[in-house]
């Protein structure tokens, strides 16, 4: 007849660990995982308006894994670790080699959290992946590209790659080249463009915009426009401003030139009418 008490007290191999120890550890871990889930959910609700998303995410992860770690510490003293170490010596070496990249990703993840070259919500470029950081996990970083595609980058790859963070600084600059005709007044065009820039709330007052004639081009006069905008909204400013500038210039009679070429014939042009032209005349 099966005796449950005797089974739970029996040792697993020669390690000295009983089935009771294993069950107790699993139960404690399950309980602490549940507690961690409850606490982090409650904290997320109460702090989500009060802390930046990235800081909140890191804080919640520390609390979550801290509580589970505490459960592990409480559950482990019942287990004789020397038995595990002895029995798992060779297995440990094998697992060590196999988990080399996992450890590397884990350490890189820790450095990413400490050094903070990127934060959740930042617009970044890592290698050929460009998008918004969705999450920084223990082993990987999740990026959502601007096309909405989910990309998982191992933390080691993120940490060892060149990272371009488009929103790390408070403001960034963008620019346009706008051409006007030679017969248009460039000074007037510059003042119209400056007025359009001034009227946009997010085209920054300081550093001020630069608007100047840059080149006397083949088809027209090229005006360079450089505008500073808050990094958080620079893309929407960029997409709005160019058309507003075009509309404002045209409203004042200043037009964007078409490509054109003047050809001089030293002997003049002799036109020869074709048969169809003669018929029609």
């Amino acid at each position: 007849m099966f005796n449950a008490t005797e089974f739970l007290g029996s040792s697993i191999g020669s390690s000295g660990i009983t089935w009771y120890d294993v069950l107790l550890l699993v139960a404690i871990l399950a309980l602490f995982t549940l507690i961690a889930q409850l606490i982090t959910n409650r904290l997320r609700k109460s702090l989500e308006d009060k802390l930046p998303k990235n800081d909140l995410g890191i804080l919640l992860k520390i609390i979550y894994f801290g509580i589970i770690g505490l459960g592990l510490v409480i559950g482990l003293p019942n287990i004789d670790l020397s038995g595990i170490l002895l029995a798992g010596g060779i297995a440990g070496i094998v697992i060590g080699f196999a988990s080399q990249s996992v450890v590397s990703n884990f350490i890189s993840g820790l450095f990413l959290i400490v050094e903070r070259p990127i934060k959740i919500g930042d617009n970044i470029s890592v290698g050929d992946v460009i998008g918004s950081v969705e999450d920084i996990r223990i082993l990987s970083t999740i990026v959502r590209t601007y096309d909405g595609i989910y990309v998982r980058l191992p933390n080691e790859q993120v940490f060892t790659s060149n990272i371009t963070n488009y929103v790390a600084n408070a403001a960034r600059r963008f620019g346009y080249v706008v051409g006007i005709r030679y017969e248009d007044d460039a000074d007037k065009a510059v003042s119209i463009i400056k007025k359009v820039i001034w009227e946009h709330p997010f085209a920054l007052k300081n550093p001020g915009p630069s608007v100047f004639v840059d080149e006397l081009g083949d088809n027209g006069v090229n005006i360079i426009i450089k505008i500073w905008a808050p990094s958080r909204v620079w893309w929407s400013v960029k997409t709005e401003m160019l058309w507003k500038i075009k509309v404002a210039l045209e409203a004042e009679g200043i037009e964007i030139p078409f490509p054109q070429r003047t050809v001089w014939f030293p002997d003049g042009i002799r036109m020869q009418a074709g048969p169809s032209d003669e018929d029609s005349s």
Binding site: A170, A171, N206, W228
Partner: peptide, 10 residues
């Protein structure tokens, strides 16, 4: 209207 107080970094 918005502006930047200080350098663009920081």
């Amino acid at each position: 209207k918005y502006s930047l107080y200080g350098p663009s970094s920081g």
